[in-house]
């Protein structure tokens, strides 16, 4: 596992050897999470890999069998109350009192957090629920309940936001909206976010750093950029007379592969791509498409997690 260069102790959230056994079986095993200030950390893994169990331990909802959690440089076990004051969370599905209005739901949490009343209006406006705040929550759509959950998580002005599958069950418009909301938070409010998902495509669009968990073990943890670098972007060319073009590229020393009318070149830098295109045009080929093969990022994940389709 590669590690980012950052001195130990300077992480906003760090776990060491975090392990949880349920009925003798380790559902989370020796997980060392490292989340830096301002990160949007994508916590990825197939369903049942241990994401939610890990998150429960980060919030003190479940006790680790072994190992510990350090948040803001302090041990969670010894400073639970102080740490949780600066952590907002939404675990699995939103919690809401259906018979209460949106505002009343937030008031319950506000009284427990003991923050000023104005925070309710602010949180409602961040998730754009002001208009529906006076209605009973049981009449809300799932997307609205999810937004109310985010508002509840933001109420205490947290430094760390832990969101477990925040787009689960939302329709495409809801997912898009949630994504924009999450992406806007670190910039506007200096929040660090831990975000779990079983979908790579989901996290890829938001995260700056990813951790991948499989069968309870963290099998990858690094910046999203390094993960993308590992895929060594393959460039695909669709051209006329592909046979000729392919031979020419091989002559010139490019490691091109041919598949019917398409040629692919691995690990090509911008300049290489430009010179290949120039050469092909000079030789009279029509260049129909030049595309980066994005599926290879998925395939790196599939290799890592050993699952098909979704993580």
């Amino acid at each position: 596992m590669k590690m980012m260069k950052q001195a130990s102790g300077s992480w906003l959230l760090e776990t060491k050897g975090l392990t949880k056994k349920l009925g003798g079986k380790a559902v989370v095993r020796d997980v060392d999470l490292r989340i830096g200030e301002g990160d949007i950390y994508g916590f990825l893994g197939p369903n049942g890999a241990g994401k939610t169990t890990t998150i429960r331990m980060l919030l003190g909802l479940a006790k680790p069998t072994r190992g510990g959690v350090t948040v803001f440089g302090k041990s969670l076990a010894a400073n639970r109350m102080e740490i949780l004051r600066h952590v907002g969370s939404l675990v699995e599905y939103p919690s809401y009192y259906g018979h209460l209005t949106g505002t009343e739901n937030l008031e319950v949490i506000r009284r427990l957090l003991d923050v000023p009343k104005e925070r309710i209006a602010e949180a409602l406006s961040i998730v754009r629920l002001e208009k529906d705040a006076g209605r009973a929550v049981k009449g809300y759509s799932l997307g609205m309940k999810q937004r109310l959950g985010i508002a509840a998580a933001l109420l205490g002005n947290p430094r760390l936001l832990i969101l477990d599958e925040p787009t689960n069950g939302l329709d495409p418009a809801g997912i898009q909206e949630m994504r924009e909301l999450i992406k806007s938070l670190p910039g506007q409010r200096g929040v660090t976010i831990l975000l779990s998902s079983h979908l790579l495509s989901e996290v890829e669009l938001m995260a700056t750093k990813v951790g991948i968990i499989r069968s309870g073990s963290l099998i990858y943890q690094d910046s999203i950029a390094s993960l993308k670098a590992r895929t060594a972007g393959r460039i695909r060319f669709s051209v006329s007379e592909p046979e000729d073009a392919w031979k020419r590229l091989l002559e010139l020393g490019f490691e091109a592969e041919r598949d019917q009318s398409r040629l692919t070149v691995g690990g090509a830098a911008d300049r290489t791509v430009a010179s290949i295109v120039a050469e092909l045009v000079r030789r009279g080929h029509s260049v129909y498409r030049v595309e980066e093969e994005r599926s290879s990022l998925e395939s790196v994940f599939l290799e890592m997690t050993g699952t098909g389709g979704s993580l």
Binding site: L59, L61, M81, V91, Y93, S95, Y96, L113
Partner: peptide, 18 residues
Amino acid sequence: GIEHQAGAWKQLLALPVT
């Protein structure tokens, strides 16, 4: 039952209350 129905135990106990 209010908490069970709301699925609110996890939310409640992740707040700074004992």
